[in-house]
């Protein structure tokens, strides 16, 4: 920037940096503590959900029939993926804050894409699991269905179906949110990183 250019920006900067009201630091810190606590709770819920999926998967693996084992394997993979994604999201966001603009933008895109993959796979696992449990229930009409837990089939299956229904609802919401976020990122991408004009100009037009 030449000197005249610099003076023009300085004049604007003086207006821009007009002193504002003092920040209530104590109030801000209370808000942040509350926010951090809520974020920690959500993170714990995400991890717990992954652990429940893994445990459910192990339970279904133990049942012995091949359809249950299939669902069990899917839940094990999905639960592991969910835990990994929760951990990565939490730490990737912090890395994104510190990167330069391009790096942060790319991390955000990867985050949104990973969220979409998680939601789609969760949706598939939950929907498949519900259908499979319903089918198994009608196929095995014997109420004292073979199991470690001495309860009739439907008394156990209803909890699994309810949990998978909740998972289905959550994945549908997350899919919508992450798709919206990714659309937003792509919408601003051209605005943020426009093609640069040919080099060679000094950039100072006096």
């Amino acid at each position: 920037m030449d000197i005249d250019e610099g003076q023009k920006w300085s004049a604007l900067a003086t207006i821009w940096q007009t002193p504002a009201d003092a920040i209530d630091v104590a109030h801000v810190q209370r808000q942040l503590h509350r926010r951090a606590r809520n974020a920690a709770i959500l993170f714990a819920v995400d991890l717990a959900q992954g652990i429940v999926q893994i445990l459910l998967g192990l339970f279904l693996l133990y049942r012995g029939d091949w359809p249950s084992r299939l669902v069990g394997i899917s839940l094990l993979l999905f639960g592991g993926f969910a835990i990994g994604l929760a951990l990565w999201t939490r730490f990737a966001m912090d890395r994104a804050s510190l990167a330069n603009a391009d790096g942060a933008f790319r991390v955000s895109i990867r985050q949104a894409e990973a969220g979409i993959r998680w939601a789609i796979s969760g949706y598939c696992v939950a929907a498949t699991g519900i259908v499979l449990l319903l089918v198994l229930g009608y196929a095995h009409a014997d109420p004292a269905y073979r199991s470690l837990v001495p309860l009739p089939y439907w008394e156990k299956a209803v909890f699994a179906i309810a949990y998978l229904g909740l998972l289905l609802w959550r994945c549908t919401r997350l899919l919508r949110e992450n798709r919206r976020y990714l659309r937003g990122l792509h919408a601003i991408e051209d605005d943020l990183f426009p093609p640069e004009p040919a080099m060679g100009l000094s950039g100072a037009d006096g």
Binding site: A96, S97, L98, A99, N100, A101, A104, F105, S108, R180, Y181, R183, G184, L185, A187, I188, L192
Partner: peptide
């Protein structure tokens, strides 16, 4: 610089979320 970088990156993420709403 450290703080401005963080603020800027969070703001861009915010704009992206708002862009599709």
């Amino acid at each position: 610089t450290f703080l401005a970088r963080i603020a800027h990156n969070r703001a861009i993420s915010h704009v992206a979320r708002a862009a599709a709403e």
